[in-house]
Each structure stands twice: as structure tokens, then as C-alpha cells.
Design a binder for these strands. Structure first.
Length: 875
DNA sequence: TCAACAACTC
DNA sequence: GATTAGAGTTGTTGAA
């Protein structure tokens, strides 16, 4: 027999919420109710294995019951705000899971449940009603089963007719009469005063219904009851009416509306991740019927593979290798897929046979995270060309805020196909294996699954890139960039180790000295690196005033210490200690550890899929945060040197973000300033402070600089005041003056937010997108943060777009002009090249031209260049 | 192993 | 009325 499960959504989410009212995501969004209800629904799926499903909700606004009796549910408090905010979440989850839900203006969930239950029961489909509200017991009949939650929401009890009789003393058909007499305080249904459950049951046992009781009231033997019934006859009738669940709500019903279908995995996974519901995430994967990876694909040998590729002119591939030192990495195995044929190669002899195909631009390649492949092939002297698709990059463009882009996960989301994941095959954490420790068949299945996954992604993502107009960005910027980032990583940055040793000695001596002085002044030794221990010394032992709290204690951050510096000499020592130990641990020890023993260079990894705005990020080591601001830290840059016979050439965009802002906002004053190449900070100072440009003091200029940056980041008067050490009121005037001077900037910012509210995302010059979910959130804090993100992302992201184009231009021209100069680093608005001395003049021209012509804005792009025998000198 | 804090960059 | 600067990486501490 077919089955439908009908859930009272409001009733259950309420119970779930009170059971887990404290549950929040890391961002502070309450999720207990949504999580509880969804968990319960998963449980119901398992328990009942229904063919149909329905979750009914109440709707805001009066129902016919309120019109009948204006005090109906009059004693109820509204839903707590923390729960109300979860309603959209739970509805989104249900929609993603393709679980039908209903709500109707003017009716309660109960009425929809009654109507739907009868509709199905009449068709001989077993209806199971799940609710926490015993009112629903009146629905019990043939084919309608009612299950009431008990103790929270973890257990259900089915009430059959005999159970109802036992508990209420009346059968299902007379529950409404029972309520009519005894009332219901929860819903503020009056009933007859003084008539409780026992009396009601007794009266109904004799008279059957409220109507019958009233008609035959003279036969009531108890005089008190008789008078009550006479006095409150109307009220009893009204109460019965209120307690009656409608079974004929005017809605169009069709059985198929409630049929369960496959969930939208992508949407569901996205939601569960967004709301940090990991249990549900795992459950979803387990519950979904997966298409197991075909193990019976045809495996062909290398010669057949070559013939096939030459015919099809396209293949997908994945190379697994042992990472040694970027110069002697070992092939473990590689899989190639053309149509439905797969070839697995595990020796370099066969592998070498493919070199002409790798290097042939006309042979189109697809892969996943191809930086990996480029780095291997470069070591073998193979120049990979003709890359058309990288699933890793495609996934990033489609969803740049994802935490990770695991191939098996993406494949599962896109096609519910299960391939072996890295974690399953290699494990994780300390016990993680290297691929060469795998048994051959496990390894082959793994790599074979990967190429199959790559083809699945190529198929699915291609349409999605097209649909979102990402094709151009993908093909002309992001995919070509993969090779360039690989090349930068492969080349590396030369390091002067003796210089590191020199600075190390200096620093280590200083640190020991400062340490001693700190201990002396504190009167004891302690761990200065521990904010907790430091706070005890400063705020308890030395009695300094704690100015700011953190989650776990008192703040000892730099700006707080600065404010305390005048109160005790130890504070300045601590600031100094922090500066030096930071340099030592991160930039001396950290950098030394990152030097490749074979090349003697550092090979930073420039990651293309980390930053949501489209910027690159740099790791192992991070070369994008090498000190520059303070003289001592700046010395670190002396470690970075050109190769023998070469010089470093650095080029940075001048004010690229503010120029982008000028372009996007079309603000006349900004446009004019940049077109005429006026110093923008001086110009802003003259506007904000109302003085002639020639009269602007250096303090005014530096304040104006803060204002300019602050605008880009969406800073408020509080933040600006804080950072300039001025009052909030003054800061407010600055900002107001700024917007008066550049009137279109305000309008632009407003229009970005408006369009974000409409579309749910913002975009950059090249159409790169970022979804911003909280832009319409009712939580002030979340919404404000979202607005700042929305304002900043088009600016930061467009600047990132521009320099990416510049990198491609530079790289291609260096190659076309057969120069030995190499791009070796990008730092957001700056490119660094290693240039043989005899190429310097040519490369300077090439670099400036390429960068300045990368993208045509309404204002010119200006590039400043410097050369030097170290990064320190190239300033 | 992970969160919190602090410090460095554009 | 709230809160308070966008995007990153790394190292250290201290609790689980």
C-alpha cells in the first residue's frame, strides 16, 4: 500500500527549537529549529519509507477561527524572533530536498493536514500525520494514522482509537466535542467553565455530542452541570467549531503534487554547509542512491591511446606523482581518458611517447587542478599546451566562496556519481599515505575515477559557465593563468642565505636582551607570547587599565599596548619584543624552512581558488606579506635576490583600486583627478579640509589617504576616528565631505547594494561573481557586513582581474620575444621579474606597456617601476 | 587537532 | 539601537 507522511511543520519546528534553542552557526545564525525539523524528516523517511510527503505550515495573519472568535489563540505569544528567522532556512532546505510543503493564507497547518490526509485516505493511500498537537487526534479513521511526538522530538507514539479512548475517555470522532466542553487553554478555546476532561468525558459518554447534550440538557442529572450547559451552550458550540479541523480547505489537490523525487543535491549540500549542519550533510550522502563508478571501462594500452587521441584530438588526464623537490619528482601513474576508453600508464618509457601530444596545442586537454600537471611536466622538460578545461578553476568561478574543491565531492554534487575520494584512498592527518604506498589496483581505480570525474565536470560545468557568462573569463584569463602560476612556482625566487644568517644573528641578540628587560620589569619570567599570561602581568600584577576585552580575556593587541605605552616602560619593550619575534619566527625561521634544498630558492605556491574576490593567495611561503612598512622588517627584503647576471624589476600599479572606483562610479571629480594625474590623496585632502592643493599639509594628506582607503573598505566614522586618533564626530565630517566632493561615489555604492539585493551577487569588470547571502538579512550586524563586502568586492575584484590580464600579456610577450626574463611574483598590484641585465631596457618597456594596456578604463592605468640587486633595493 | 589571538601584506 | 575596515597566511598558545 502506498503511504504519505504529513508533517505539522510549525508544531515540530517549535519543539525542535526549544530542544536546541541555543544552537547557532559560527556566524551567530540560529539553526536549532531548522536542524531539528530536517533531522526528524530524515528519520521519518527511514521509518515510513513513504511514497508521498508533505510538510504543512501556518501562515501569518488571521484565520477563519480568528474571525469567528477574536480571542482565538489570544494567550499565545508570537514565535520568538530566533525561531522566526529560521523559517526561510527550513523552507529553503525543504525545497532543495524536493519535499513538498504547503501553506495557505487564512488556514492553519492543521486544516491543510486534515484536508490532505482525507484526500489521500479516500484514495486508499495510508496517511500518517506527524505532530506534537493532540488536536490532530480527531483525524484518526481508516487509513489515517496520527503520531504524536513525545519527549522532545526523538520519539513518536501512534494513537489508535483505543488509545484515544483510554487517554481522553472519548473516541476520535468525539475529540471535537470533548474540546467543545473542556476547552483548550493553549489555544484560548473557552469550552464550558469548570468543565474539565473528566466531566467532559462523562457527559459525552451519556450524550455523545455537544449538540445532543444541549438538546437534552434536561436529562443531565447533576444540577450544577445542567446549569453550566444551559448558560454556556453557545460558548460550547463555538468551542467545538474552533476545535474542528477542516477537511475541505479550498485547495486544488493532486496526488502527484506530493510525490517524493530526487533532491537537488547541489542546493542541499550548499545549504547544509552554509548552516554548518554536518550531520545532515553526511546523512544526505549516505541516503542518496549513488551511481557507483563503473569498474568495467575498457582499458587500452598506450599505442591504442595515441591513435585514439590523434583521431579525437582531445583527452582528459590526471598525473599522480611523488613530490620530491620540484626537480626530481617521480611518476607513480597517470590516467588518460578519450571517449569511454581509459589508459593507465605507470612508467616513463610509455609516458614519453605522449610528449608530442602534450605539446600539441591542437590536442585539447581537460584536467583538474592542472597546476599539478604543469609542475610535473615542466620538470620533465615538457611544455603542456592546449589546455581547454580545468574543473578546479571552473568550480571556483561558479562558487568562489567554497572552502574546498574536492574532485570527488564536486562530482558527487553534480551527478550523484561516487568516485574514490582522496581521503578514502589516502586517509588524512598524520596517517595520510603517499600514493606510492597504495596497492596497484586501488591506485588504478583511484586515478581512473579521477579522469572519469573530470569528464563529468567538463560536461556539467561547461553549461554552467556558459549560462553564467563566465566563458570568456574562464577561457581567456583563468585557464591561461594556471600555466603562468605554475611557471612562477617552478621558477622560484632566489635567496641570499648568508643575508638571512646575518639578520638572524642581529635579531636573536636583540630578542634575548629585550626578553631579559621584560622579565626584570615584570619581576618574574613568563611566556611573553601568551596573551593570557601577558594580560595577567599587565593588568593584574602591574595594575595597568585593561582597555578592551576579547572573547577570552583582556586584549593585548598592538593598538591597546600603544595606548598604555606612556603608563609603564614594559609596554614599549613588549611591542618591540613582538615586532622582533614576529620577524624571527615567520620571516627568518619560516623562510629558511621553505628554501628548496635542491634549487636553493623559495617556490611559493600562488593559489588561484582561495580568495573570494578573485585575488591570488600565496603560501609555503607566503611572499605576499613580506614586511615593508617598518625599516627593521623591510630588511627581510634583502634576502630576495635576482639570479646571477640578472636584476630584479618590480612594477606596481599606482592607486589601481581608486582608479577602478573612478571608472565604476564615473565620478567626475575622481575621473578628472586621475586623468590629469593629480595626487589623489592631496586632492582628497584639499576637498575634505577645504584648502588649496598647494596648502595641504602632510598630516592632512595622510588623513585623506586613510579616508580614501576607508571608503573602499566601507569604513564607518567610528573606525576612521579610531585609526586617525580623532573624534568620531570629526571623522564623520571627513566622510561627509568626501561624499560631497565625489558625489557619484555614494550613488555607485548605493546602486551596487541595490543590485546585489536584487540579484543576490555582485560582479567585477570581467563578470566574476560573488554571492552575498546576507545582503537582505534582518540581522543588522550581518547585513552591514554584507553591505561592506558588496561595496568592496567589485573594486578589489576588478583590480585583481586587471592584473591577471597583465600577467598573461607579460608572460606571452616574454615568450614571443624569446626573452629569458621571468615573472617570479605577483603581490596584488605589483609584478616582480627576474631580468638578465642585457634584457633590462627591452623588458622595462614590455612590462610597462603590458600592464598599462591590460584593460581600458575611463582613466589611465599608471605603472611605476624600480630595479635592484635585491627586493629591498627595488623600491 | 583546532580555536583564538596577534602580526605581517595589498 | 545595534556595530564599527575589504582580502589574505603564518606562528604561538592552550584546551580538547
Amino acid at each position: 500500500m502506498n503511504r504519505i507522511v504529513i508533517v505539522d511543520g510549525n508544531s515540530l519546528i517549535n519543539r525542535a527549537f526549544f530542544a536546541m534553542s541555543e544552537l547557532k552557526t559560527s556566524k551567530g545564525v540560529y539553526t536549532g529549529g531548522a536542524l531539528g525539523l530536517t533531522t526528524m524528516i530524515f528519520g521519518l523517511m527511514d521509518e515510513f519509507e513513504p511514497d508521498y510527503f508533505c510538510v504543512a505550515f501556518d501562515m501569518k495573519g488571521p484565520t477563519f477561527r480568528h474571525k469567528t472568535y477574536d480571542q482565538y489563540k489570544g494567550t499565545r505569544k508570537g514565535m520568538p524572533n530566533e525561531l522566526a528567522m529560521q523559517m526561510p532556512i527550513v523552507k529553503a532546505i525543504l525545497d532543495a530536498l524536493k519535499i513538498p510543503r504547503v501553506e495557505l493564507q487564512g488556514y492553519e497547518a492543521d486544516d491543510l493536514i486534515g484536508t490532505i490526509a482525507h484526500y489521500f485516505a479516500d484514495q486508499n493511500i495510508e496517511a500518517h500525520v506527524i505532530t506534537g498537537d493532540k488536536d490532530a487526534l480527531q483525524l484518526v479513521r481508516e487509513n489515517i494514522h496520527v503520531h504524536i511526538t513525545k519527549k522532545g522530538i526523538t520519539q513518536l507514539k501512534e494513537y489508535k482509537n483505543e488509545d484515544i479512548i483510554e487517554e481522553l475517555g472519548v473516541d476520535a470522532d468525539h475529540v471535537i466535542d470533548y474540546k467543545g466542553l473542556s476547552g483548550d487553554s493553549a489555544d484560548n478555546i473557552p469550552g464550558i467553565p469548570s468543565v474539565g476532561p473528566k466531566t467532559a468525558a462523562k457527559l459525552l459518554a451519556e450524550f455523545g455530542t455537544v449538540e445532543n447534550l444541549i438538546q437534552n440538557v434536561e436529562q443531565v442529572s447533576n444540577k450544577r452541570w445542567k446549569n453550566l450547559v444551559i448558560d454556556f451552550a453557545d460558548q460550547a458550540m463555538l468551542s467545538k467549531k474552533l476545535a474542528t479541523i477542516m477537511i475541505n480547505v479550498p485547495v486544488e489537490l493532486e496526488t502527484d503534487m506530493f510525490k517524493l523525487t530526487d533532491p537537488d543535491m547541489e542546493a542541499a549540500i550548499h545549504l547544509f554547509r552554509q548552516y554548518e549542519m554536518n550531520g545532515l550533510l553526511n546523512r544526505l550522502k549516505v541516503k542518496t542512491e549513488v551511481v557507483e563508478q563503473k569498474t568495467e571501462v575498457e582499458r587500452i594500452d598506450v599505442d591504442a591511446l595515441i591513435k585514439l587521441i590523434e583521431f579525437e584530438k582531445a583527452f582528459s588526464f590526471k598525473i599522480i606523482y611523488n613530490k620530491v623537490d620540484l626537480r626530481h619528482d617521480d611518476l607513480i601513474c597517470a590516467a588518460f581518458k578519450v571517449k569511454d576508453q581509459i589508459c593507465i600508464i605507470d612508467n616513463m618509457v610509455d609516458f614519453e611517447k605522449l610528449v608530442p601530444l602534450f605539446e600539441d596545442e591542437k590536442m585539447h586537454k581537460s584536467g583538474f587542478d592542472l597546476k599539478n600537471e604543469y609542475l610535473f611536466l615542466m620538470q620533465k622538460g615538457i611544455d603542456l599546451k592546449g589546455v581547454k578545461f580545468d574543473g578546479y578553476i571552473a568550480a571556483y568561478l561558479l562558487e568562489p566562496s567554497r572552502r574546498s574543491y574536492d574532485l570527488s565531492e564536486l562530482v558527487f554534487e553534480q551527478a550523484t556519481v561516487k568516485i574514490a575520494s582522496e581521503e578514502e584512498v589516502l586517509g588524512k592527518g598524520a596517517k595520510k599515505k603517499t600514493p606510492d604506498q597504495l596497492e596497484q589496483e586501488v591506485l588504478y581505480q583511484y586515478v581512473q575515477g579521477m579522469v572519469m570525474g573530470i569528464d563529468i565536470l567538463a560536461d556539467k560545468f561547461d553549461d554552467k559557465l556558459e549560462a553564467n557568462q563566465f566563458k570568456k573569463l574562464f577561457e581567456t584569463v583563468e585557464v591561461p593563468l594556471v600555466k603562468i602560476l605554475s611557471d612562477i612556482e617552478f621558477t622560484g625566487f632566489n635567496i641570499d642565505v648568508s643575508e638571512i644568517d646575518h639578520i638572524d644573528e642581529l635579531l636573536t641578540g636583540q630578542i634575548t636582551e629585550i626578553e631579559k628587560e621584560i622579565y626584570e620589569q615584570a619581576g618574574e619570567t613568563f611566556n611573553i607570547n601568551s596573551p593570557k599570561q601577558l594580560a595577567v602581568i599587565l593588568f593584574e600584577k602591574l595594575g595597568l587599565p585593561p582597555l578592551k576585552k576579547t572573547k577570552t580575556g583582556y586584549s593585548t593587541s598592538h593598538d591597546i599596548l600603544e595606548k598604555l605605552a606612556s603608563k609603564h616602560a614594559i609596554v614599549a619593550e613588549i611591542i618591540e619584543y613582538r615586532t622582533y619575534t614576529k620577524l624571527k619566527s615567520t620571516y627568518i625561521d619560516g623562510l629558511r624552512a621553505a628554501i628548496n634544498p635542491v634549487t636553493g630558492r623559495v617556490h611559493t605556491s600562488l593559489n588561484q581558488t582561495i580568495a573570494v574576490t578573485g585575488r591570488l593567495s600565496s603560501t609555503e611561503p607566503n611572499l605576499q606579506n613580506i614586511p615593508i612598512r617598518l625599516p627593521m622588517g623591510r630588511k627581510i627584503r634583502k634576502f630576495f635576490i635576482p639570479d646571477e647576471g640578472c636584476i630584479l624589476l618590480g612594477a606596481d600599479y599606482s592607486q589601481i583600486e581608486l582608479r577602478v572606483l573612478a571608472h565604476l562610479s564615473k565620478d567626475p571629480a575622481l575621473l578628472e583627478a586621475f586623468t590629469q594625474n593629480i595626487d589623489i590623496h592631496t586632492k582628497t585632502a584639499s576637498q575634505v579640509f577645504g584648502v588649496e592643493t598647494s596648502e595641504v599639509t602632510s598630516l592632512q594628506r595622510s588623513h585623506a589617504k586613510e579616508v580614501n582607503f576607508g571608503i573602499v573598505y566601507g569604513m564607518g566614522d567610528f573606525g576612521l576616528g579610531e585609526s586617525l586618533g580623532i573624534t568620531r564626530k570629526e571623522a564623520k565630517t571627513y566622510i561627509e565631505n568626501y561624499f560631497k566632493s565625489y558625489p557619484n561615489v555614494q550613488g555607485f555604492m548605493d546602486s551596487v547594494i541595490e543590485s546585489c539585493k536584487e540579484k543576490g551577487y555582485v560582479e567585477t569588470l570581467l563578470g566574476r561573481r560573488r554571492d552575498i547571502a546576507d545582503i537582505s538579512n534582518s540581522n543588522f550586524m550581518l547585513r552591514s557586513a554584507a553591505e561592506r563586502t558588496a561595496r568592496n568586492t567589485p573594486i578589489q575584484g576588478s583590480a585583481a582581474d586587471i592584473i591577471k590580464i597583465a600577467m598573461i600579456k607579460v608572460f606571452n610577450r616574454l615568450e614571443a620575444e624569446q626573452l629569458k626574463s621571468k615573472l617570479i611574483l605577483q603581490v596584488h598590484d605589483e609584478l616582480i621579474l627576474n631580468v638578465p641585465l642585457d634584457e633590462l631596457e627591452q623588458v622595462k618597456v614590455l612590462l610597462k606597456e603590458s600592464m598599462e594596456s591590460a584593460y581600458e578604463l575611463l582613466v589611465p592605468l599608471n605603472v611605476d617601476m624600480n630595479t635592484g640587486a635585491s627586493w629591498y633595493d627595488a623600491k
